[in-house]
Design a protein around this nucleic acid. Structure first.
Lengths: 368, 368
DNA sequence: CGCGCACCTGACAACGTTGTCCAGGCTCTA
DNA sequence: TAGAGCCTGGACAACGTTGTCAGGTGCGCG
């Protein structure tokens, strides 16, 4: 491996001087237990010569402590490097001020902004965010969600991988606020925040039809994924509205790995009556299809679901049906805290609109 | 707002039937406290007619329980919907099986894969990941890191925003494993995992020089950010190696918002002796510069630090110095767990190599 | 000067779990 | 059949914090 390793001894960024802190030794962890013998409120109280509860009051900024006492306690805190143990606090108070986010894959550019939006809302409510990726595996989603519940997160934002979420019923009944995003919950009654997948896809396909296309391909994700199914439904609706009978060979659903998408695209583009336009079901598919089309001599129109960075810089620019990932996350998180702050709220299904962004690829006329 | 809201009453994905679960009512939260009156081990024990510790044994799969007793306990658990309270467990055991990640911005495509890699390693060690964005604000980084310590995360992976991390010394001494990624820690002695920013930038600029360029611009992030400073240093080194005196107007450092970058680029490209090539200091800058160059009639060579999706699809393809974000995250997390599993390890600085990916934009000859 | 009141302070229990330790019942052997 | 040893089960304390409540001090007013 090409990595270079040097023994430490940092240099200060600004002065370039070598810094050797007198002691940044890790405390020997006592064998089974204890956080490296951290000081507790008891220790602080002893050192400050006050009672336990007085320390608690100072730490939490509660009233009823004379300035002099407060100063003594604060000095002891600083001297010992005390930091309140929130685990114990949580145990006592019942609220953890943290929420969980179960998503599909943090590395997917669609979920980054969504996750960030959830985090911002959480932050504004003083909560931390614990998140995990389900990798599109229902079992893993379940494990993750339940692990978060065991940590007693106050609420849960879930981007479902599975289609049966009854396993969450006991948790919801026990008071865990829950909101589903991007895809609906399966078999339970809960808040859901979605994009208008059906309408967006229909509009996108209609846009191609309006530019003269009739043989239009659809390449999407596995049909068991709700968004994929909805977008396919939108495609079918647009075609039907235009009175165009859809041929089976124009549709391809399955995993979104490049190889499959590539093959599917090539098949649609070959044969006697090839498609003259393609509608792609998500950003990963779109990117692969753009690559395939770049290799074609013939011009093929393209509209993709999901916006992506640089779509405007390609030639032609890629026309997309854009959904607002950040708005999805924000709306879901706000909904979550509404549940937490206001007690029970009847579950709703919130659908956010999509937006057709014309950049050129969708406005190409049918070739030949 | 264009959102559509419908009262719930889910339909099953597969059957289309309307599902109305008999009761998914949220438990009334008792006023101050309690997790909606969740059952505890005590409740389970009472129902199963066994002792508290026996329940604990069953829940944790400890030996010493007859199959018959185990079955009774398991039934009680299922009937009550019991789930172990990990907060209490943590309090007792001292380890939380969770690690914290403080990064700059989850929505940045560079950090998605990094975060995901950290998560995977954490998962393989049975730990959860709590993360937060510092938004490049040192104070917020500090708050976040300390909040995570208060939750008693076992370890911390930090992408520094600030340049002084002495505030972490008490935590490290108390046993919180800590690894810094992407940028070094300031003023403390800790593990650091970096890309070879200096070498990568030097190689990238040398590549431009090898293709005949002499007037080469550098547009980067704020110089207080370590990576930006290192990359600038690499630029200077390459120029010096080639015996080219660098002019001040060829360099522009500052925030990476599009407006500033755009202006900086335009300035370098105008005037009597404009630059014939540009080296960009990170992916956000690169993208903006690509946009500006696309508007130019003249061809300008470009090499960017950081790879980005679709760089190969642009015309010309964008030549980049690629760093492996996932490898950074993975290496850091592995290092973290090495500390956690193996006790004290002397801090090291690990530097991962970068890779020059030629795609065309860096191989353009100087215009005119 | 004495009483009452306000204001501080601290002892104590409780949160839900796990580690320790002991009791009781069983089996196996001498 | 008695004793030893093993296996199972449960009582109890402890983890570090916060809510409750009662005690103590000092001050003002009658």
């Amino acid at each position: 491996m090409g990595r270079r390793i040097t023994p430490m001894g940092n240099t200060d960024d600004r002065t370039g001087q070598r810094i050797v802190p007198e002691t940044t030794r890790r405390a020997e962890r006592s064998p089974g237990n204890r956080y490296g013998n951290r000081p507790t409120m008891k220790d602080v109280a002893a050192r400050a010569g006050v009672g336990l509860k007085t320390v608690s009051r100072v730490v939490n900024g509660e009233p009823g402590v004379t300035p002099d006492t407060e100063r003594r306690v604060q000095e002891a805190i600083d001297a010992l490097g005390f930091r309140r143990n929130d685990s114990a606090r949580v145990l006592r108070k019942g609220r953890t001020a943290s929420i969980g986010l179960v998503l599909e894959d943090l590395a997917d550019p669609f979920y980054g902004p969504l996750s960030r939006a959830v985090e911002e809302v959480a932050r504004s409510h003083g909560a931390l965010l614990i998140n995990g990726s389900s990798a599109e595996d229902p079992e893993r989603e379940r494990e993750l969600a339940l692990a978060l519940c065991a940590r007693r997160v106050d609420g849960l934002v879930v981007i479902p991988a599975g289609s049966d979420h009854r396993y969450l019923e006991p948790e919801i009944r026990a008071g865990v606020a829950t909101v589903f995003v991007d895809r609906p919950a399966g078999r339970i009654d809960a808040d859901v925040v979605l994009s208008d997948n059906f309408g967006g896809a229909r509009d996108g396909v209609a846009h191609l039809i309006a530019h003269g296309h009739r043989r239009i391909g659809f390449i999407g994700d596995m049909p068991r994924i709700h968004t994929a199914a909805e977008r396919l439904r939108g495609y079918r609706a647009a075609m039907e509205d235009a009175g165009i009978p859809v041929e089976d060979r124009w549709m391809s659903l399955g995993v979104t790995v490049p190889e499959r998408v590539r093959r599917a695209t090539q098949e649609m583009l070959s044969g006697p009556d090839p498609v003259t336009a393609v509608f792609t079901g998500n950003n990963r598919v779109t990117v692969t299809v753009v690559r395939v089309l770049a290799e074609q001599s013939r011009q093929v129109a393209l509209v993709g679901f999901d916006d992506f960075e640089l779509a405007d810089l390609l030639r032609p620019g890629v026309t997309v049906v854009a959904q607002d990932a950040a708005a999805l996350g924000r709306t879901a998180a706000e909904r979550l805290f509404r549940q937490l702050d206001g007690g029970f709220v009847a579950p709703e299904r919130i659908e956010l609109p999509t937006r057709l962004v014309e950049r050129g690829s969708g406005e190409l006329p049918p070739a030949r």
